[in-house]
Design a protein around this nucleic acid. Structure first.
Lengths: 140, 140
DNA sequence: CATAAATGGTATCCATGTCAACTATATTCG
DNA sequence: CGAATATAGTTGACATGGATACCATTTATG
């Protein structure tokens, strides 16, 4: 019981570190890193949104999100307009350039994911999604 | 299918980053970071072992493991004796001080894991272990 | 056997993630 | 209302992880 929990946490820790490295390498030649990509994708999927919303969605530190957004703005992958409700915040959206880059990255990532996880049956994949959804929900 | 794979990878990426941060914070007051602890624990469980073995067991970069081991040696948590088989390598073991620290850390971590994952049923926990074992095996 | 290639490990440079302190605006409540 | 508190976001210092080049030894190969 306690051992199982420890196993789960250890796996998540190690797989997380491994994936961060691998994804980072894969994205090297598009001049974006793995966390920047995660934020960009999040904005595309659920945006327009402000930084706080990004933080709670993907569980990054706000200072980290702030720096990532700064880079994405600088590279012209997202745009920012002052929030109507809150003068401290800015509403972020993905630019056409950003959408283009997401497309290219997803192709690479999908190919890699497929290769990496091809040994998993459809059933296993479903089980994985289900259980990870559950666990992710507990983190919030 | 492809979407499910993406979901799995995304969850692993985000949960990994989240856990690294949380575990790191939890270990702050024992002056060790999360990766150092993972390496230390690995040496305790499967040691004595050399750096290369650590790398392939936990999928860290060798330059990273080298630095981590250096710190563990400096803090007196592990000891190193020249490997009998290979003059380039050194065999690493956990010291009594290291074992002590592992005990203290495990207490903290177990408490935290329990609290975090208490919503998971025994069945779900088993499903999680099973599927993560499978996925971890594919990473090697 | 000797040279080339591979491997275990280290040192250095650089990017990046975290923390803490801060500014500015919003919200709460006496 | 106005002071206190909370919240959105930024910044700078710092530690650390990854890439690279490198050394020493081991293994493979002509």
């Amino acid at each position: 019981m306690s051992a199982k929990r420890t196993t789960v946490v250890k796996h998540l820790l190690l797989l997380g570190a491994y994936l961060q490295r691998e994804a980072g390498r894969m994205l090297l030649d598009v001049d974006i890193n793995q966390q920047q990509f995660v934020v960009l994708k999040e904005i595309q999927e659920r945006g327009p949104m402000i930084q706080r919303e990004i933080c709670s969605a993907i569980l990054f530190e706000k200072s980290n999100v702030s720096k990532i957004v700064k880079k994405l703005l600088k590279s012209g992958l997202v745009t920012s307009i002052p929030s109507a409700e809150d003068a401290r915040a800015a509403s972020l959206s993905v630019t056409p350039k950003g959408r283009l880059l997401i497309g290219r990255c997803m192709k690479k990532l999908n190919a890699w994911n497929r290769k990496w996880l091809e040994g998993l049956s459809e059933k296993e994949l479903e089980a994985a999604v289900e259980v990870l959804d559950r666990i992710a929900a507990m983190a919030k």
